[in-house]
C-alpha cells in the first residue's frame, strides 16, 4: 500500500498545552487507519490537523509538517477550502443541517459552484448510494433530515461528505453515539468505501479498530507510541504500553 499522508515531527500546542508531541506517521492510501488510545491523548487533535479544522481554535500553534500526496498542507499555496473539500470529515454526533435530505447532500457541491439541477440530482443520488442510504430515502428526499434515525443521519453526513468528491474521509468516533446495529452498518460502509477513499478513523473502541482497520496507531499523552498493521499491533505489539492498553490493563 502506497502512503498518501506523511506526518513529520508534528507538534501542536493549545496555548501552553503541548497536545501533540513529535508525531511522525504515514497513512496508507485506500485503506482504513484507526487511531486508538485513552481519552484525551490527542486522537481528535491529530485528525483535525489533517483538514486544518484546528485553524479555527484560537491559540493553536503547530510545528512540523503534514504532506498529502506530496503537497505540504500548511504551506501558503494550499487554500484551506480546497483542502477541506478533498479531506472530508464525519463527526461524533450526527450533525445534519436543518434542511431536507436533498439539500443536506447538495450543500457541499453548491458551495463549490454546482448549480445545475440535473448535475445536483446526480451527485445526490450517487452520494446517497455510496453511503448505502439511497434505498431508504429515495422517495422522500424533500423531507427534513431530522426525521431520520441517528444511524441514518450519520450515513447522511457521510453522503454529504462524499458529495464534494474527497480523497480522504476522516471519522471522529463516528459510531460512538449510535446503537450496535447502526454501528455495524457504518463499519460495513467503511469497508466498502476504502476501495475508493483513504479513511482515517478515531475510535475509543479497540474492537472496532481490530475489526475494520488495516493499520492501527496507538496514542498516549499526545505521543504516537506505536503504529503498524492492525493484525500485528493487536497480536504482537512491540511496546509494553501498547500491550498493556490492548489487553485492557488501562484506558
Amino acid at each position: 500500500m502506497e502512503a498518501l499522508i506523511h506526518i513529520d515531527k508534528l507538534n501542536l500546542y493549545y496555548g501552553a498545552f503541548h497536545a501533540l508531541k513529535n508525531v511522525t506517521l504515514t497513512i496508507p492510501e485506500k485503506a482504513i487507519t484507526a487511531f486508538i488510545g485513552p481519552s484525551g491523548c490527542g486522537k481528535s487533535t491529530l485528525l483535525r490537523t489533517l483538514n486544518r479544522m484546528n485553524d479555527m481554535i484560537p491559540g493553536t500553534r503547530i510545528e512540523g509538517g503534514i504532506s498529502i500526496g506530496g503537497t505540504e498542507i500548511y504551506s501558503n499555496e494550499v487554500d484551506v477550502e480546497t483542502l477541506r473539500k478533498k479531506v472530508g470529515m464525519v463527526f461524533q454526533q450526527p450533525n445534519p443541517f436543518p434542511k431536507s435530505i436533498y439539500d443536506n447532500v447538495a450543500y457541499g457541491p453548491r458551495l463549490h459552484g454546482t448549480t445545475n439541477k440535473k448535475e445536483l440530482d446526480e451527485i445526490v443520488e450517487t452520494s446517497l448510494k455510496s453511503a448505502v442510504l439511497w434505498e431508504e430515502v429515495k422517495d422522500h428526499l424533500k423531507r427534513s433530515a431530522f426525521g431520520l434515525s441517528g444511524g441514518q443521519q450519520q450515513r447522511l453526513c457521510i453522503a454529504r461528505a462524499l458529495a464534494v468528491n474527497p480523497n480522504i474521509l476522516l471519522m471522529d468516533e463516528a459510531t460512538s453515539a449510535l446503537d450496535p446495529i447502526s454501528t455495524l452498518k457504518i463499519e460495513e460502509l467503511a469497508q466498502e468505501l476504502k476501495d475508493k477513499y483513504t479513511i482515517v478513523m478515531v475510535t475509543h473502541n479497540m474492537h472496532q479498530a481490530a475489526r475494520v482497520s488495516n493499520q492501527t496507531v496507538f496514542f498516549l499523552n499526545g505521543e504516537v507510541i506505536e503504529y503498524s498493521d492492525t493484525e500485528k499491533l493487536f497480536s504482537n505489539p512491540t511496546d509494553q504500553r501498547t500491550e498493556d492498553y490492548i489487553s485492557g490493563r488501562f484506558g
Binding site: 477541506r84 463527526f91 443541517f97 450543500y107 453548491r110 463549490h112 453526513c157 461528505a161
Partner: peptide, 25 residues
C-alpha cells in the same frame, strides 16, 4: 450549535458561506 458551523467548514465553506447558508437560516 457549533456542530452546524463545523459541518459547513468541513465541507470547504468559507466564513461567509457558513454564515449565510448555515448559521443565518
Amino acid at each position: 450549535p457549533k456542530s452546524r458551523r463545523d459541518a459547513s467548514f468541513a465541507l470547504g465553506a468559507t466564513k461567509w458561506q457558513t454564515v449565510s447558508r448555515s448559521v443565518m437560516p
